[in-house]
Simulated assay, not measured.
Amino acid sequence: MPISEVKIPHIETPRLILRGPRPEDFAPMLAMWQDPEVLTYFHSTGFSREDVWGRYLRIFGMWAVMGFGFFVVEDKASGAFAGVAGVFDTKRELDPPVPEGMPEAGWVLARAFHGKGYGTECMQAVFAWADEALNGPEIFCIMNPENQGSIRVAEKCGFAPWYICEHGGHPTKVMRRAPHGKPVTVA
C-alpha cells in the first residue's frame, strides 16, 4: 500500500500541524530519538537508526491496521519537525495488565519544543480527534515517575494516576483518561 493510501488525518492547532509522516521526517526523527536530553526519562542512551526506522514505519502500519496511531507534529511557523504524538495499540505487557484493546497515548517532542506547552497543545488536539473518531475510548499512558513534564501534560489532558508497576526493569507510572476525558474515578 503506497504511503498516499494510508489515511492519516490532518489536524491544526494554533501553533502546530499534526499529520502523517513524510520521507523527509526520518532524519529529524532519528535526531530526536538519539538526543540524550529527549531520552532523559526513557532509560536509553539512544535508539539506533534501525530502531528509529522501525518506529517510523510503525506509524504507517498502525494507521493502516488500526485506523489510529501517531501523528508527526510540525511547527506551523517554521515547518520544523517538532515530534510525534498520538494514540496507538501497543499490546504492552504490564502487571497488572491494562484491558485488551485499550489505546495508549504517547508523545515525544524534539528538544527545541520542550517546556513551551507544545505537548499539551498537541495532545489536547489528539484527544479531541480520538473522542470523535474513536467514540471517546478510555486511554492509558505510561511514563517514568520522575518525568514531571509529561505527568503535567497528562494531567492537563484529563489523566489521573492509576498504578505504578515495573516495565523493562524500571518503575513505570500508569495513568488513565476516562472515556471522553470525563473525570477518572479511582477505586
Rank of each mutant, 00 (worst) to 15 (best):
S48N: 06
G169S: 12
K182H: 14
L134C: 10
A154V: 04
H170S: 12
A80S: 11
G181N: 06
E50F: 09
G20N: 05
V52S: 04
V52G: 03
A125W: 00
M32K: 03
I59K: 00
L94H: 03
Y56A: 08
F81L: 04
F81T: 01
P171R: 13
E121Q: 09
A82N: 03
T120F: 05
G115A: 11
C122H: 02
L109Q: 01
I11V: 15
M143Q: 07
I3G: 06
Y56G: 05
A27V: 12
G117I: 09
S44K: 05
M32C: 09
G158D: 10
F140M: 09
P103D: 04
K156F: 12
L30F: 09
G86P: 02
G169E: 15
N144Q: 13
G69V: 02
L57H: 13
E93K: 09
E121S: 08
A27M: 09
A112C: 07
P171N: 12
T13W: 05
V153N: 00
M62L: 09
G158C: 14
G136Q: 08
A110K: 00
F81R: 01
V98M: 09
N135I: 04
E155P: 02
E24C: 08
E74V: 11
I142D: 00
P183F: 14
H10Y: 15
R49T: 15
I8T: 02
P23I: 07
A31R: 13
V108K: 01
M102S: 06
A112Y: 03
C141Y: 01
G158H: 13
M62T: 07
A31P: 02
A112W: 03
T120Y: 04
A27D: 15
F70K: 02
P96H: 07
H114L: 11
F113L: 04
E104M: 06
T45M: 09
P171C: 12
G115D: 10
V72K: 01
E5T: 13
V186A: 15
E5M: 11
A80D: 14
V98F: 02
R177Q: 10
G169D: 15
V126T: 05
C141M: 15
F70C: 03
E24V: 11
L18M: 12
E50R: 14
L109R: 00
P183W: 15
A178T: 08
A154E: 03
S150N: 11
A77N: 07
T185Q: 12
G136F: 07
G69T: 02
H167Q: 13
H10M: 14
H10F: 15
R49N: 13
C122V: 11
V87T: 09
M32P: 00
G46R: 02
Y118G: 01
G20Q: 03
V87I: 14
F71R: 01
D51W: 02
G117V: 06
L109Y: 01
G136R: 11
K173H: 11
I17P: 00
M175S: 13
F71Q: 01
C157W: 00
D25Y: 04
N147H: 15
E121P: 04
I139F: 05
V52R: 01
K91V: 12
E121Y: 05
N147E: 13
W129M: 10
N135T: 10
S78D: 08
A178C: 10
F127V: 06
R15Q: 13
C157S: 07
W129T: 08
W33R: 07
E74T: 12
E104A: 07
G67I: 06
F70Q: 03
D75A: 10
E166I: 15
